[in-house]
Design a protein around this nucleic acid. Structure first.
Lengths: 193, 193
DNA sequence: GAAAACATGTAACCGGTTACATGATTCT
DNA sequence: AGAATCATGTAACCGGTTACATGTTTTC
């Protein structure tokens, strides 16, 4: 159900096509939420039926058209309601840590390779999020700027700092995962010596 | 697909019934992996068909029977193969951080309540994992002891330290989430003053 | 003119959730 | 005798993944 609200969050800034939203997920916000186009298009249709968004055909080039969605008042209410509702914390299902608990079953070579993958994965995320923070601070974030334009002066600081707060959490997470995997590598080294 | 391997991990220690496995998920290992009974029983059936486990009916009380599953050689191979394979890192889908990025949409009261829920959730997990570490260190972990009994002396340290390593990572994760949410609470306080 | 990007879908499948259903055993 | 626990399932549903399919526009 969160896809719906991730889409509403983006559409609360400005109208977009399904493809625009897909690209957003692949770039900045995508690092918090992701969905393939095959999930986005049908969801937008459903949201239109539910009255949360409205799609209108707009011309695209000489012959083409595309469907641009804008959020409705009901969509704004739904998003705000979701934002005020508590979210449910589902039970832990953590593949890397499950595997780590049984790492003696892996060969040292494979264990090292997997820990390095873990480091590589979270290093890439870390860089992306650091870049996001940099863009927030330097005022280069297009989407944030668009949001701030529509935000009363008094609330702009608030909006910016919450966005920054979210990314800071993700940065610390990534750093922690990297350090954890590095500890694992050292542990394997010690055990094998 | 990980449920299958989480079950094999447990069955590699000793034969168990579906209900035993369910209880394991609800307690210690459950904090790394969880599955409801409605998912476990059918999965065990499939694993039996695939030759990874074998179920045998054993008497239970005067009239009842229960099905106890034990891992097969093919199951051991499958588990070891999975342990040596790299796992795929799927795209981030992080509800708490998604909401945090748009926290200005929530009322301060609700934002505070949600951050406190976040703290409560991760504090509970933290305590459980600290307890798990304590049990590993004190030799009270029944499942680990059972595993160590079947482990050659030379590999016992390895097995114990990897298990500890996994929980240490989870503990750091939990602490980080708690600190992050506390920063969020301070941020709201500052903004509202 | 070709390639890359823009644009929009359908369909089969899969892992996981929730609800429903039932009965035996053990403990108090 | 009743409650808690042990035991085992089915079925509907839902969110998400992967594969397939197609056509337009823009850029080089």
């Amino acid at each position: 159900m969160s896809l719906r609200y991730a889409l509403l969050a983006l559409l609360s800034v400005e109208p977009m096509t399904g493809y625009d939203l897909y690209k957003q997920f692949e770039s900045t916000v995508g690092h918090v939420w992701y969905a393939p186009d095959s999930q986005i298009y049908p969801e937008l249709r459903k949201m239109d039926q539910d009255g949360l968004v409205e799609g209108e055909m707009v011309p695209w080039g000489p012959r083409g058209t595309k469907r641009r969605y804008h959020i409705t008042d009901a969509g704004v209410v739904a998003f705000r309601t979701w934002m005020n509702d508590d979210l449910e914390y589902s039970r832990a299902r953590d593949r890397p840590h499950l595997k780590a608990a049984y790492l003696e079953w892996a060969t040292p070579t494979s264990a090292i390779r997997q820990l390095n993958s873990h480091i590589a994965h979270h290093t890439a995320e870390l860089h992306q999020w650091e870049e996001n923070i940099r863009e927030i601070d330097s005022g280069e974030s297009v989407l944030l700027n668009r949001r701030l334009e529509q935000t009363p002066e008094a609330d702009r600081k608030r909006t910016t700092l919450f966005k920054r707060f979210a990314y800071e959490g993700l940065i610390t997470q990534a750093r922690q995962e990297i350090e954890w995997a590095q500890r694992g590598l050292r542990l394997i080294e010690e055990l094998d010596s």
